[in-house]
Write a protein that binds this DNA or RNA. Structure first.
Length: 884
RNA sequence: GGGCGGUUGGCUCAGGGGUAGAGCGUUUCCUUGACACGGAAGAGGUCACAGGUUCAAAUCCUGUACCGCCCACCA
C-alpha cells in the first residue's frame, strides 16, 4: 500500500472495473434474499448536479450497496427527466445570447437545440453520478422521452380520458406571461411584496352617491364587470342591482350581493374582475357576469382594455390608470400594503390569473385520490420522517383539479385529435384517433399543447420498468422499496406517483418515502444559482475524493434536519478516510505471510482482554450500523463507524497490539494479527456503503476472499463475542493510566520512576499490568497487585483511583503542596456530587415512587462517590503524612 | 390566518424524564517506526424564556419570543 491514499486514480480505476464487471446489475450478484429496488428521482436535464443531488444519490447508493451485501438482488434504476418548462427556459436563455427567440427558430429547429442541450447535460449528469460512485444499473437508464416511456404516458392519458378524468375547459388559470404558458397551482410560488392598496371611488350611474373599492391591482379595473358587497352589510342594504359607472370608461356595471365580499375588509366593497382573479371568476360565474380579458397572454393590455391602454404592459398600465384616476378625482387613497404575489416557480415572473381554455385532470373526489389517501393513512406507504404523512394527506384531501396542458414546445404533445367538425378524442396514435372518430387520419389536427412535466414523471417507478407492458422487470422489481427525495417535490411528484401507481398498476409504487435533508449554505440559505452560494460536487470530489464527500454529507444529513453545508465540513471526513488508510497500511505491513484467513475469529479461543474487548465493541458497531441503516439514520451509522474505528480500534486496540508485535511470543503475534485483520476486514464491509472506493481498495490490499467487497456479506452480530467484562477489563487500566499520568504530572515526578501499583479491585493483575505497560512502556512496573515492596525501598503509597495506589519512592522529588491543594479541590467536588445523590436518596418520595432501576442507580452513584471521597481523603492523608 | 420544524459548549449538530454528548475550533505537551489529514492531556454548556405536571424536566404539557419552512380565494 502506498503511504498516501490517492482518491483520484483509485476512484477512476475502481469505477471502471465495477462497471466492466457488470457488478451494478442485479443479475450479477448472488441474490438469494429477494429483490430491492430504487428508481432514482430523475434529475432535470437543465444543468449539472448540485449538492442536493449529491445527498440524494449518495444515500440511495449507500442503501443499495447495503442491501446488496444483505444478499438482495438490487436494482437501482437511473435516469433523467426532460423537465419541460425548466429545460425550455434554459435553452431559450441560451439562444437569447445569440439574439434569438424560439419563435425565430420555429418549433422544429428549437427542439433540435433542446435535444443538443439534453445530450450534453444528460451525459454530464450521468458522469457526475458515476463520479459519486453510484452503483446504478446503467443498462436500464431511462429518459422521460424514450419511446417506451412516451408510450406509457399516452396510455396514462388515454385511460384517464376514457375514464372521464380529463376534460377541457375555460377557467382562470395561472399564466406566466414570460414562459407564455399555463401552470398548475403548485408551480406558483408566493412571495411577500411591499405594495399598495388603492382605494377607488365608483360613482352610481344615477349620480346619487358612490362606492369605494380597494384593490392591489388597479389596472384590472378595466376588466371589472361588477362590484360586490356582502348581502348582510347594512351599509349597502337595498342597493343590489344599482348600476355603477366604471371610472375611466363609459361602462356601467352592477352592484351585486355576494357573501364572498368581506364586511371587515376596507369599505366592504370589492371590484369583480372575473377574467383575472380566481375568486372573481367564481363570483362571476355565480352571477352570470361577462368576463373581459383585458390582459393578454404576453402580459400586455388587450383591445378590450380600451384604446388608451391597449398594448401597454401590466406595469405601465397600472401607472397610467392610477394617474388617470387621480386626474379624474376617483382615487381616494393610496395605502401601503404588504401582500403575497404569485410568481412563476421557474422564472419568477409575476403570474397573471387568466381566463383560458386548458386541459384539466379531474382530481377532487376521484377514487384515484381516495386510494392514495388510504395507502398513506394506513401506512402501507410509510413516510420518513412521519410528519410528512399528515402533510401529504392534507394536501390530497384538499386537492383541486390539475391543469395539465402547457403552451410549450418541449414536452409530450397532448394526444388529443380534432376533426373538422370540432369533435375530438384521445388516442395513442393519429390512426387510433381517426378510427375512434370515424374520419381519415389526414383530416385530424393534433392539439398543439404539451403535457405538464409532472404528468409524465408521475409514472416513473413503473414506466421505467416497462409498464404498460407486463415485463419481467415490472413483475420482479415493482413495487419499489424506497423513494428518497427532496421535500419540495412532495406534492408535485411524490403524491402523484402514489396516485397513478395505485390507479394504473393496482399496487403502491414504493414502501417508504424518505425525505432527506435540504442542503443549505453556511448561513442557512438555500443554495441557488442566483445567490451564487452553490457548491459543485464534482469540484469537491476532485479536491477531497468522492468517499470524503459522501461521508461528510451522510454524516451531516440527520433525519428531518436541514444541513448547513460548506466546504470546510469535508476535511473532517477526508481525515477519517486518511485515518482508515493509514491504520490499514499499518495492519497490513505487520501481517505475517502465513495468516490463515479461513480461520475467522471465533468465540472459543483464549483471547486476551483487549482482543475480546475490541471484538465485543465490533459487535455493538455492527448492530448500530445495521439498525441505523434500516431506519434511515445514516448520520448515526456514520458516527458509529467513526467512533468505533478511530477511538476503539486505532487509538486503543492498534496501539495496544504494538506491544504484542514487539514481543517474541509467536502464538500471541499470530493471534493478534488475526484479530487486527478480522476487525479491519469486518469494518471495511460495514463502511463500504458509505465509502465504496476506499473500502474496495483496502479490502483488495488485505488478505481477502472474493472478487469485490461489494459482494461480501453484510456482517452480523456474533452474540458469543459480546463481552462487557472484557470491555471493562480494558477500560479500567486505561482509567488507571490516565490517573497515574495525571498524578505524575501533578507531582512533577517522571513517570519512568513508577514501579509499583497496588490494586484492591477484583481484576486480573497480570492483564492490567500488561495492558498498562503496553500503553505506556515508560512505566517500569515491577509489580501489580502486591503491597510488599521488593528490595526494601522506602517511599509512600498514593491512592490514584478508588482502588488503586501507586508507590512513590523516597528518591522522587515531589511537589506535595501543589498536590494537596488539588486533592482538596477534588474532595469539594466529590462532596457536592455526593450531597446531590444523597439528597435524592433521603427523599422518601424518591424511594417510594421512583423506579427500582433509578433507585439502584442512585445507590450505586452514592457508593461510587463515597468510594471516590474515601480515596481522595486517603490521598490527602498520605500527602499530609509525607509533608510531615 | 392555519400548520410544521428549530432554539443544547466559540461553530455545526446528536441526544432526550434520573447529576450534559460528538466533530470542528481552542489550550498545553509530543515530529515515538501507520497516520501532524496524527497522538496524549485539558478548558469550555444553569440545554431560548415563563409557567405547569412529576419524587425527579434540557427531555413531557401550556404559553411567549426569535429563526426557518409549508399551506390558504391576505380584494
Amino acid at each position: 500500500m502506498e503511504s498516501k491514499y490517492d482518491p483520484k486514480t483509485t476512484e477512476a480505476r475502481w469505477y471502471a472495473q465495477w462497471r466492466d464487471a457488470k457488478y451494478f446489475k442485479p443479475e450479477s450478484a448472488p441474490s438469494p434474499n429477494g429483490t430491492y429496488t430504487i428508481t432514482i428521482p430523475p434529475p432535470n436535464v437543465t444543468g449539472s448536479l448540485h449538492m442536493g443531488h449529491a445527498v440524494c444519490y449518495t444515500i440511495q447508493d449507500a442503501l443499495g450497496r447495503w442491501q446488496r451485501q444483505l444478499g438482495k438482488k438490487v436494482l437501482i434504476l437511473p435516469g433523467v427527466d426532460h423537465a419541460g418548462i425548466a429545460t425550455q427556459n434554459v435553452v431559450e436563455k441560451e439562444i437569447a445570447q445569440e439574439g434569438l427567440t424560439r419563435h425565430d427558430l420555429g418549433r422544429e429547429k428549437f427542439l433540435e437545440r433542446v435535444w443538443i442541450w439534453k445530450k450534453r447535460f444528460g451525459e454530464r449528469i450521468i458522469s457526475q453520478m458515476q463520479g459519486l460512485g453510484c452503483a446504478f444499473d446503467w443498462d436500464r437508464e431511462r429518459f422521460t422521452m424514450d419511446d417506451d416511456y412516451v408510450d406509457a404516458i399516452l396510455e396514462e392519458f388515454v385511460r384517464m380520458f376514457d375514464a372521464g378524468m380529463i376534460y377541457r375547459g375555460a377557467r382562470v388559470i395561472n399564466w406566466c406571461p414570460r414562459c407564455a404558458t399555463a401552470l398548475s397551482d403548485i408551480e406558483v410560488e408566493y412571495v411577500e411584496r411591499d405594495s399598495h392598496l388603492w382605494h377607488i371611488r365608483y360613482d352610481f350611474a344615477d349620480g346619487n352617491g358612490s362606492v369605494t373599492v380597494a384593490t392591489t391591482r388597479p389596472e384590472t379595473m378595466l376588466g371589472d364587470t361588477a362590484v360586490a358587497v356582502n348581502p348582510d352589510d347594512p351599509r349597502y342594504a337595498g342597493m343590489a342591482g344599482r348600476e355603477l359607472l366604471l371610472p375611466l370608461t363609459d361602462r356601467r356595471i352592477p352592484l351585486i350581493f355576494d357573501s364572498y365580499a368581506s364586511m371587515e375588509f376596507g369599505t366592504g366593497a370589492v371590484k369583480v374582475t372575473p377574467a383575472h382573479d380566481l375568486n372573481d371568476y367564481e363570483a362571476g360565474k355565480r352571477h352570470g357576469l361577462p368576463m373581459m380579458v383585458v390582459i393578454g397572454e404576453s402580459g400586455k393590455m388587450t383591445a378590450e382594455a380600451g384604446d388608451k391602454y391597449a398594448g401597454l404592459t401590466r406595469e405601465e398600465c397600472r401607472e397610467a390608470v392610477v394617474e388617470d384616476l387621480e386626474a379624474s378625482g376617483n382615487l381616494v387613497q393610496i395605502e401601503d400594503y404588504k401582500h403575497s404575489v404569485g410568481t412563476c416557480e421557474r422564472c419568477h415572473t409575476i403570474i397573471e390569473p387568466l381566463l383560458s381554455e386548458q386541459w384539466f385532470a379531474r382530481m377532487a373526489g376521484t377514487t384515484m385520490i381516495a386510494n392514495a389517501i388510504a395507502a398513506i393513512e394506513s401506512e402501507e406507504i410509510k413516510f420518513v420522517p412521519d410528519r410528512y404523512k399528515r402533510i401529504s394527506v392534507d394536501w390530497l384531501e384538499n386537492i383541486k383539479d390539475w391543469c395539465i396542458s402547457r403552451q410549450l414546445w418541449w414536452g409530450h404533445r397532448i394526444p388529443i385529435y380534432y376533426a373538422h367538425d370540432g369533435k375530438f378524442t384521445a388516442a395513442k396514435t393519429r390512426e387510433g384517433a381517426a378510427a375512434r372518430l370515424g374520419v381519415s387520419p389526414e383530416s385530424l389536427r393534433q392539439d398543439d399543447d404539451v403535457l405538464d412535466t409532472w404528468f409524465s414523471s408521475a409514472l416513473w417507478p413503473f414506466a421505467t420498468l416497462g409498464w404498460p407492458n407486463d415485463t419481467e422487470d415490472l413483475r420482479e422489481f415493482y413495487p419499489t422499496n424506497v423513494l428518497t427525495t427532496a421535500r419540495e417535490i412532495l406534492f408535485l411528484w411524490v403524491a402523484r406517483m402514489i396516485m397513478t401507481g395505485i390507479e394504473f398498476t393496482g399496487q403502491k409504487p414504493f414502501d417508504d418515502v424518505y425525505i432527506y435533508a435540504t442542503v443549505l449554505d453556511k448561513q442557512g440559505r438555500r443554495m441557488s444559482k442566483s445567490l451564487g452560494n452553490g457548491i459543485d460536487p464534482l469540484e469537491m470530489i476532485d479536491k477531497y475524493g468522492a468517499d470524503a464527500l459522501r461521508f461528510s454529507l451522510m454524516r451531516l444529513a440527520s433525519k428531518g434536519q436541514d444541513i448547513r453545508f460548506s466546504e470546510d465540513r469535508i476535511p473532517e471526513a477526508r481525515n477519517f478516510c486518511t485515518k482508515i488508510w493509514n491504520a490499514a497500511r499499518f495492519v497490513n505491513m505487520n501481517l505475517d505471510d502465513g495468516l490463515d484467513i479461513t480461520q475467522r475469529v471465533g468465540a472459543n479461543e483464549a483471547y486476551t482482554v483487549p482482543e475480546r474487548a475490541i471484538l465485543s465493541k465490533l459487535q455493538a458497531t455492527v448492530a448500530t450500523v445495521s439498525s441505523s441503516l434500516a431506519s434511515y439514520d445514516l448520520d448515526v451509522a456514520c458516527e458509529a463507524l467513526r467512533g468505533f474505528f478511530w477511538d476503539d480500534y486505532c487509538d486503543v486496540f492498534v496501539e495496544w497490539s504494538k506491544s504484542v508485535q514487539r514481543g517474541d511470543d509467536a502464538a500471541a503475534k499470530a493471534r493478534v494479527q488475526l484479530v487486527l485483520w478480522h476487525v479491519l476486514e469486518t469494518f471495511l464491509r460495514l463502511a463500504h456503503p458509505f465509502m465504496p472506493y476506499l473500502t474496495e481498495e483496502i479490502w483488495h490490499a488485505l488478505p481477502h476472499d472474493g472478487d469485490t467487497v461489494m459482494y461480501t456479506l453484510w456482517p452480523t452480530v456474533n452474540e458469543a463475542l459480546v463481552d462487557p467484562a472484557a470491555e471493562e477489563g480494558l477500560n479500567a487500566p486505561q482509567r488507571y493510566l490516565r490517573e497515574i499520568r495525571a498524578a505524575h504530572q501533578e507531582l512533577g515526578v517522571p513517570i519512568q520512576e513508577q514501579q509499583l501499583l497496588q490494586i484492591n479491585e477484583d481484576v486480573d493483575a497480570a492483564s492490567v499490568s500488561s495492558i498498562l505497560k503496553a500503553f505506556d512502556p515508560r512505566l517500569a512496573l515491577a509489580n501489580v497487585g502486591q503491597e510488599q515492596i521488593e528490595g526494601g525501598a522506602t517511599g509512600f503509597w498514593l491512592p490514584v483511583s478508588a482502588n488503586v495506589q501507586m508507590f512513590l519512592p523516597d528518591s522522587a522529588s515531589i511537589d506535595l503542596a501543589g498536590l494537596q491543594t488539588k486533592i482538596k479541590k477534588q474532595i469539594a467536588a466529590t462532596e457536592k456530587s455526593l450531597a446531590s445523590v444523597q439528597g435524592k436518596l433521603n427523599n422518601p418520595n424518591f424511594i417510594s415512587k421512583a423506579s427500582e432501576e433509578a433507585v439502584t442507580k442512585s445507590r450505586a452513584d452514592e457508593a461510587a462517590n463515597l468510594n471516590e471521597l474515601e480515596k481522595q481523603q486517603r490521598q490527602l492523608a498520605a500527602v499530609a503524612a509525607r509533608l510531615g
